[in-house]
Design a binder for these strands. Structure first.
Lengths: 187, 187
DNA sequence: CTAATAACTAACCGATTGTTTAGTTATTTA
DNA sequence: TAAATAACTAAACAATCGGTTAGTTATTAG
């Protein structure tokens, strides 16, 4: 019927995601998004509706990106070792592409209070819940752990992920590995 | 010679610090600072020069606020137990006053990249280095730990502080305590 | 080839950002 | 009491924020 889009939404979102990953939500402006995505505001708004829309779509893209890791994690059957592998995989993926440090969700987690942006907040909470559920599942494989212990350890590991995200930003590869090893010493 | 200030700088900075603590740096605006500090922009700028100045002064105030904890920590002589106490004290202080969750430095740590605000960035790095040095000092008290182990454990504990800060924001008192206990299981 | 239509450019929107400044008020000292 | 001076009020500053829109360009279907 009419003119074709000169860009591919998946491609420009990939770039937007990288920008959010590096700078967080607030300090990423529409100007920066225009430049990074290579399209202008009109196109951004016609494709994604709002800045929030771009971020929400970036979160989806992030989930897709780490889907490989999550899939491997879900289908694994070695209990605690699977969680450890998941930690190592999380580090590797941020090493692979560009300057993306830490985890997009963990990095931006603090920026959104439940009150001022419930949509994004819920997405993040869902992500975290998903991770926690998988932790519990893998921890349960042991068979010897009681429910109380499993809950404690899952919580511990979820919080340890914050440390891991911080580590990938400021620590060396060796220090990161040491951190992971120490984290799992008692699990 | 002339008119007296109708406010006390220490008092208004205390309030500014609380605001930064709750909202972070970027999402705290001068308007919000005016309202919270109870003085207008002229007074803020004549006292602190800029928004960055207010934050820098807030960091100083934060250091003063936790000086009690740090002092206790510095002068303690029970090694690992002192670090654990320090973790518990860090939680208690954020429970004491208002809605201040986590640690001001840890919360805002991610917001500043080395490049765009070196002054603040350096202050934060100095704070972290200070904590790490104390960790090393206390860990060394044991006498049995070799240098390599001490470095590893100090790094681990510093990263664990990120998890702790996250915990004080989203977890229950019991979960926080469990987290601390698990963190120190292998130290 | 033409009418329809979607994608694009670029200027613009009001609101808000951090910051400054002109004018007024209060206090001090001589 | 009067001149000096610092603290205050309030309006305005340019720049940027997220978001919109009028007008142009390209592609399609008939």
């Amino acid at each position: 019927m009419a003119r074709k889009k000169a860009y591919i939404e998946e491609e420009v979102i990939e770039k937007a995601m990288g920008l959010f990953w590096r700078n967080g939500y607030e300090s990423t402006s529409m100007q920066m998004l225009e430049k990074e995505m290579g399209i202008n505001k009109f196109s951004i708004y016609s494709s994604f509706g709002s800045k929030q829309g771009v971020f929400l779509e970036s979160l989806k893209n992030y989930n897709k990106k780490i889907h490989v890791i999550f899939d491997k994690f879900k289908n694994a059957n070695n209990g605690v070792q699977d969680i450890k592998d998941f930690f190592y995989d999380s580090v590797h993926i941020s090493n692979l592409e560009g300057n993306h440090k830490g985890c997009l969700v963990t990095n931006t987690y603090n920026e959104f209070s439940e009150s001022d942006d419930p949509l994004i907040s819920n997405q993040m909470a869902a992500f975290m819940d998903n991770v926690k559920t998988l932790f519990i599942e893998k921890l349960s494989m042991d068979g010897t752990k009681d429910e109380e212990t499993i809950k404690k350890q899952a919580n511990f590991l979820l919080l340890a992920k914050h440390g891991l995200a911080a580590a990938t930003r400021v620590n060396t590869q060796k220090e990161i590995e040491d951190y992971i090893e120490m984290t799992f010493m008692n699990i």
